[in-house]
Nucleic acid binder design. Structure first.
Lengths: 105, 105
DNA sequence: TCTGGTTATATCCGGCGTGGATATAACTAT
DNA sequence: ATAGTTATATCCACGCCGGATATAACCAGA
């Protein structure tokens, strides 16, 4: 199973957030500020995902965005997409169970 | 945020799995065998949840079940139920995002 | 132009949580 | 009786995370 941080990063990349800092903001956004991926966790997680073949660096960023030399862009590999999908499916089952248990509506 | 194991335990208890070993089977069931809560993680997690006030031991188990002296029964505290609900709501948002990203249907 | 705030990446340390193994013992069925 | 399953508990090594610190590029406004 992926770590929570690992899934957050994959999901952010699948949602079109191409570089590290954008991933950080995505996670904060989607959780309503409850979850924060700090630099230490963020960049280490990205490096691990690259080492595991789930993510790869892509030389070109969004061509519409203004150039920023600091940014490093990433994208999912097919394996990363598969892993993210499996994790999302597991999560769907957990949400269904939470609904059946009356925790959420 | 809860750890993955912590949420699994709370969800299992909310789903009427009263004792430790039943929690273990619940997690294995719901994940289709992909996730296994091993003894080391399971009982340490339960103890931590008790220490944090999210779970409490309940002296009586299911009266319909045959008595088994080894079993220790647990239930959610109001605080535990709140924590589980918040985590489930966060997870719902993640699943929605995964759907919007085309990861799942 | 220079200055402050934000964006962006990177690394270190201490500590917490996990996986896997091992142990023990009570149940159950044959 | 005895073998297999159910059930709880604890240990060690390792991996991951939070928080802090560092560095530097970008941008807006004075």
């Amino acid at each position: 199973m992926l770590t929570a941080a690992g899934f957050h990063v994959l999901l952010a990349l699948a949602s079109g957030r191409g570089h590290g800092y954008a991933v950080m903001r995505f996670v904060e956004e989607i959780s309503g500020g409850a979850v924060k991926l700090r630099p230490g966790t963020l960049y280490r997680t990205i490096n691990r995902l690259v080492a595991d073949g789930l993510v790869e660096e892509s030389d070109a960023g969004d061509p519409a965005a203004p150039h920023d030399a600091r940014r490093r862009y990433y994208q999912l590999t097919p394996q990363g997409e598969r892993a993210a999908r499996e994790e999302a499916e597991l999560m769907t089952r957990l949400v269904t169970a939470a609904r059946e248990a009356g925790l959420i509506t």
